[in-house]
Design a protein around this nucleic acid. Sequence first.
DNA 1: CTGCGAGGCTAAGGCAGACTTATGCTCGAA
DNA 2: TTCGAGCATAAGTCTGCCTTAGCCTCGCAG
Lengths: 314, 314
Amino acid sequence: MLETARLPSLVSIRAFEAAARLGGFALAARELGTTAAAVSYHVRQLERQTGVTLFHRYPHRVELTAAGALVAEEAIRAFGALRSSFMRAAALEAGQISITALPTFSTSWLAPRLGDFRARHPGIRIEVEVSTDAQDLGAGRFDVAIRNGHGRWPGLRAVPLFPALFMPLCAPELRDAASAALAGPPEAINVPLLGRPDWWALWFRAQGHERPPTPDRFGIQLAEEHLDAAAAISGHGVTIGSPIIFGRELEAGRLVPAHPRAARDGRAFWLAYPLARQDSAKIGLFRDWLSEQAEAARHAAARWIGEPVEAPVA
Amino acid sequence: MLETARLPSLVSIRAFEAAARLGGFALAARELGTTAAAVSYHVRQLERQTGVTLFHRYPHRVELTAAGALVAEEAIRAFGALRSSFMRAAALEAGQISITALPTFSTSWLAPRLGDFRARHPGIRIEVEVSTDAQDLGAGRFDVAIRNGHGRWPGLRAVPLFPALFMPLCAPELRDAASAALAGPPEAINVPLLGRPDWWALWFRAQGHERPPTPDRFGIQLAEEHLDAAAAISGHGVTIGSPIIFGRELEAGRLVPAHPRAARDGRAFWLAYPLARQDSAKIGLFRDWLSEQAEAARHAAARWIGEPVEAPVA
DNA sequence: CTGCGAGGCTAAGGCAGACTTATGCTCGAA
DNA sequence: TTCGAGCATAAGTCTGCCTTAGCCTCGCAG
């Protein structure tokens, strides 16, 4: 690089700074992990580049000149301050984690649990941003992402959380009517369906019914899945969702399975983060905590789930 | 070099600093005389080395993170202070010149003239150290040296001042006696000789006398040549010295030539300085001034000197 | 709405600068 | 007097830095 701002070679300044601070080229070489010849060479380079004599040479030792002492003082201070700023930046960075996650996952599963993470890691502040789009982790805006998919994303490490499952869920008072309705083909449905039509189609295919429910079978059309769940809790119909994600609602009796069988599409929920970040302590802590929570959630949801049936590809 | 003090690559920090200060990689690349790809690469390296995300990436632009802003502030300050310290060091260095010179040259010729240099270059402080030994200019203790010799010193630039001349000099009242004594061979000397015996031997050889004056011909033995001159001025004998160096004494009539002929040994007085320093402004100013003074001194001394005779090699 | 330009990103390859090695110098201490 | 330590330099090696090429996204102008 050309020095447009007339700052000489930084590598040479660093060699000089170490020599000035330690009082000799041999000690500087040892600290920098190089040879005394390299330090000598760099100090000479610096003197040539700047036209300033930095050291008086005597046999066996060197002594800073007045000009050299002036630069040394500033260089020592500058490098010390820089070093300190990197440490403070690392501490700042280590003290907060930025997560991008899917809306329902965030609202219904993650958010209720974050209190526990905060209790166990009070030094780490959490930021969650919900997005239906997969955010670019390379852009640096997020440390980790919760993704739904196959788990094979280049440059990322994906930790499996739990499989994507689709189970009919309704309020307790709708149980009998919904169970009866779902025992037959889609055209026999006489209770309102809630949630994504493609997920219902997937579920019926897993039951052996090729034709999906027609639009007239659906009740309220809501923008987000957790709103579907809220409507179902209110008795407005049967929703289709993950017994793991809604595990706490099932536990509390606010939702019940309207059918014992769940369908799956081969996808799963994953924690993803850049391979380049796998040494990050905070990401490691979050990963370990999240894996633990996911395992507990899978275990707890097992009582609601019979053997999940993988739906044939439409 | 290994980073024993955990400061990451300085080249990368410099790229980062420029990008932070200018708000983009393209502008930073322009200032640093490199490509945006190089800046991007260095910022990534820095992020990997430190584990700190420094920029958020967006299409067409980048934005400092909080941690990045923290480091940027310190880096901008550090580099600015370093730059400033080099400029101040250069100014300090440019404001003083260190000279090593031969004793007599210093005392009798240089010192009386330095007032003129100081008047013409008030911003440059002069330090003269007298030494009979040739000081190592590479050690950085001296900027320039006045040397006597052949002028061919490796790594140094030598500017000729004036030839080394040896002429008998005495007080006016001793003129006739000294002239008569010096007209014949050394054994006929009946006035005390002062100064270095080897210089007298050289002078007599130049006159065609093979045998040097014997020790009994010498008066007071003094340690330094200018003391010999002082003794000669006091009428204690005839000294042997340079009519150029003692030009002002001749001019003032305190010394007169005891013989019209000067001898020379093929050597001269030179201003020497390191080739590596030839761009130094202060050295240039001193060289130009000294050359001018030397030329004036040669010119003024011409009236005292007949055709100098080169003494045959003993 | 389409095309272009600008800024950023990464991979691969080349080379120049950084460093090592070898040798030499000086001086102080044993 | 000898040896070891620190500094200096030259020459050769090699690795880190940079360039080049190609790609991506987005905003703006036509």
